[in-house]
Design a protein around this nucleic acid. Structure first.
Lengths: 351, 351
DNA sequence: CTCGCGTACTGTATCGATACAGAGGAACTG
DNA sequence: CAGTTCCTCTGTATCGATACAGTACGCGAG
């Protein structure tokens, strides 16, 4: 059997409490005794206080759970998500806390829900999880502090929210295109559950879009362009390849839109790939906008809606772990800004 | 006080064990009683069995710790790392296990070491952590199963290893360049501790390179080109920007090398950026090779050494969590392949 | 000499569950 | 009707630590 605190205590001839103090509260005992205890522990091959037992007794897990969309794969391949994670990691680390990644499977929601129920954590951070996902219910059952990256009016309970005003942010991109003379535009979204086929989609209203963020952004477009005249394009996932494939569907049509508003830079970059593959010139033959303003967008000359990424994550972690949680703002709205680059230009005249 | 199993048991008038069974072993009691228990639990606001307590009693944390290089930031921005993580996540998930990310701070190694010591996990996966990092010692103290992504002859203890033959893999790229007539080449590495300045570096032998993987790859180059004639370039980190900045140092020299062998695609792509920024043509004026063969490499026409990414992660998870750990191979060597694209071509004749 | 006080260590209760042996009773067997 | 088996449920021991109140003792002050 592996040694425990008691094993060490017996070996040195002191009480278990004292050995515990040797590790966790060095000021509670003489240096001499402490050294004797630690060296005895080494001799016995004692691995140090068991973190699980410590967590139980202390009532603190020392980690937060991060609920991530879509089997991790897309999440990680979006530079925006990566930056968010990085900010989160940094602030979480400052609080001597870890990050337990909990991927949200689309194929087996129950597995994800189980993972949430079993997670040894002190709180949760929800990033881009569709509202209907079973794991969210499991998370609420835990009754732990939660921070989400969406600002919603219909938000449940007392979740902390850190996010942007999705609708006006996207509307800014739409207005930009409208001012350039575009009248026939398409919106490119990533279906978060790969149930719907890739390609053009007919929905009567933005409200029919299942995932909140995309829905709000579509509403932003609808503030500028009559929704009935907007083409909605569904991508098979939030990846560059999926964006290219989805964009291809409308680029090959006789009457193609003069502009595409993508709900993420990753999708937009994919659209640019598809545009280039057809020998079209982005910003001239067709305009494309993205969302997030990831570093890659600057390299590609993509017009995009910038939103803070790293600081969004950092703030989420901060608010979640701050103990003076009562006083702090439970809802933080971050600024956005439209960055205009070469991928948008005047609408081509109809031939 | 929050309700516990006992609270629910008292409310229903059964024993604590029975309530526990209602959650964890439904077959042990009648459906009728189970329903009564679960509904009573709901009424009482019982959040379900406490995962920490469960972990302690079961002797299983239900998570593995992932030790990641350099404050998470670079790790996540390398698509290769992301793919590895994805594979790892998938296999870990199959075992009903979670992933606790443990970022390795370079500025505060002790903080990382503490995070490792306190992590509630059943094992560790080490990805790209420099061997001198304090957290590795802390990890070994835990005496838990470990899998690393490096195949080393001098490996300690009984770590499981999943990796590639670094030296011959890189040598293949070097031979490819040699066959194209290149004689003056540079090796681009990412210093894992940002102690050394970016730019050309003089070291007597590849052995002086601190980080194992880079060291081995440099040895691979040295198998083909006399080391004394190879220029070593240090980048400030494993990022595209750092790669570009480092490459710039030698591109602007009067006698620039005719080829650059980068130790990662991210660095190589940065080098390509620097090449393009100077109006040079990759594959003609200068050749560039990468390592990993990430999707981006194909788009950029980058010659690269392909290594399995997703399956490397998946295999690491599998070997770590498989319970028949005794019989399984504790050391798995994965294949690599040189993928030749447009970024390499014949050496330009000296003018 | 007694009181007060700080330092160094001890002992017990407790964190919240699961494992496992076993009890009680119904049903089936011969 | 005793014997066996199965199904439900119970009770106690236990996982490995930390919290906290308390003891013992040395030492300076009044």
């Amino acid at each position: 059997m592996r040694p425990t605190l008691q094993t060490v205590a017996d070996a040195v001839g002191v009480s278990r409490s004292t050995v515990s103090n040797a590790y966790s509260r060095p000021d509670q005992l003489s240096t001499d005794l402490r050294d004797r205890i630690l060296s005895a522990a080494r001799d016995l091959g004692y691995a140090g206080p068991n973190p699980t037992a410590r967590s139980l007794r202390r009532g603190r897990a020392g980690a937060i759970g991060v609920l991530f969309t879509t089997g991790l794969s897309y999440a990680f391949s979006d530079p925006y998500a990566v930056q968010f994670l990085r900010g989160l990691a940094e602030s979480v680390e400052r609080h001597d806390t870890g990050m337990l990644l909990i991927p949200m499977s689309n194929t087996d929601e129950e597995a994800s829900a189980r993972a949430v129920a079993d997670a040894v954590v002190d709180g949760f951070c929800v990033y881009c999880v569709p509202e209907w996902h079973a794991s969210l219910a499991a998370m609420r059952d835990r009754q732990l502090p939660v921070v989400t990256t969406e600002i919603r009016d219909d938000h449940r309970g007392d979740e902390i929210q850190v996010g942007i005003a999705e609708r006006p942010a996207m509307a800014a991109a739409a207005r930009h295109l409208h001012a350039l003379g575009h009248r026939d535009v398409a919106v490119l979204i990533a279906d978060m559950a790969p149930a719907t086929a890739a390609g053009p989609l007919r929905v009567d209203s933005p409200d029919a879009i299942r995932y909140y963020v995309d829905r709000e952004r579509a509403h932003g477009v609808a503030e500028v362009f009559p929704w009935a005249e907007v083409t909605l394009i569904n991508a098979a996932g939030n990846s560059r390849g999926a964006g290219a494939a989805a964009a291809a569907h409308v680029l090959d049509r006789a009457e193609r839109p003069t502009a595409i508003l993508a709900c993420s830079d990753v999708l937009a970059l994919g659209a640019l790939d598809a545009v280039a593959a057809r020998g079209l010139r982005a910003g001239a033959d067709i305009s494309v906008t993205g969302f997030d303003d990831v570093p890659e967008a600057a390299r590609a000359g993509l017009t995009s809606v910038r939103q803070p990424s790293v600081s969004k994550g950092a703030l989420a972690g901060e608010l979640l772990l701050e103990n003076k949680r009562e006083t702090a703002d439970r809802r933080v709205l971050l600024p956005t800004e439209l960055i205009v680059r070469a991928s948008t230009g005047p609408a081509p005249s109809r031939s």
